[in-house]
Design a protein around this nucleic acid. Sequence first.
DNA 1: TATTGTTATACTCTATAACTATA
DNA 2: TATAGTTATAGAGTATAACAATA
Lengths: 143, 143
Amino acid sequence: MGQEIAESLGVLLRRTTRTQLHRRLTEGMGEALDETTYPVLSALARTGPRSAADLAPEVGIDRSGVTRRASRLEEAGLVRREPDPGDRRAQLLVLTEQGRQAVAELRTRLADRIADALAGWPPGEAEAFARHLHRFTTDGPFG
Amino acid sequence: MGQEIAESLGVLLRRTTRTQLHRRLTEGMGEALDETTYPVLSALARTGPRSAADLAPEVGIDRSGVTRRASRLEEAGLVRREPDPGDRRAQLLVLTEQGRQAVAELRTRLADRIADALAGWPPGEAEAFARHLHRFTTDGPFG
DNA sequence: TATTGTTATACTCTATAACTATA
DNA sequence: TATAGTTATAGAGTATAACAATA
């Protein structure tokens, strides 16, 4: 059983698993939105307006990387920068209306893919899997 | 439910999730064995002796990358190169005894981490999760 | 003194292209 | 002609270090 999970993790954690999924999700959504900028846009949608420093651990890169990716998204009109009212050193990254639309499209695409994958599963198993996977990513062998 | 899976996938597919796990697994096992060479060693153990070209898709990089990583493992004595008896163009990458010992240690470490993560789960749920995760990585939204 | 965003720099890792040898 | 391994090269992406502004 542990061996089966180890094998599955091996596939999931492959570099190509991530890049290929993100590349397909962002396909045709403009030059600025690719597997590099996707995690920033996605994290921003998940957490709401954030500074680059706050977003960095969420995305798994440092603040200079967030700045660079955010600049690409800003040029494309998906993100804008606003001064943080509570800290004049900081800039908040905020989704524009166009950015929100892009996130909605990305979420739909991902949801469709997941639904397709689970379509043939026996009743109840998909729900159980969702719960288990969430628990595993939270308490799993990653900390 | 799809949303819950999407969130979990977001965590699993983070670049840092992979590198940190592999970094911890290989900790203290010599300079040649790190998060870069781990997937090659692991794939070799899983599939048996293979050429660089055959191993490339398994690892998710191209054959030049496999060659480079294999050379590091060879220098450290974990892998050796043998001529392929069936094709004189090819070189088979083979685990040495030291390489097999390293793989055994890595498997133990990963199994321990997984077992720790599942220790508190209700009876039967871990087994179900293992089956579901395997199915999901096989038929999932990645192809 | 510490932390912010940003930029420039150095480093790591990768794919691409070339080469020779063999199928 | 195509494919093997290998090497050199160029590209992408990253962390590190520095900077001025603000806490």
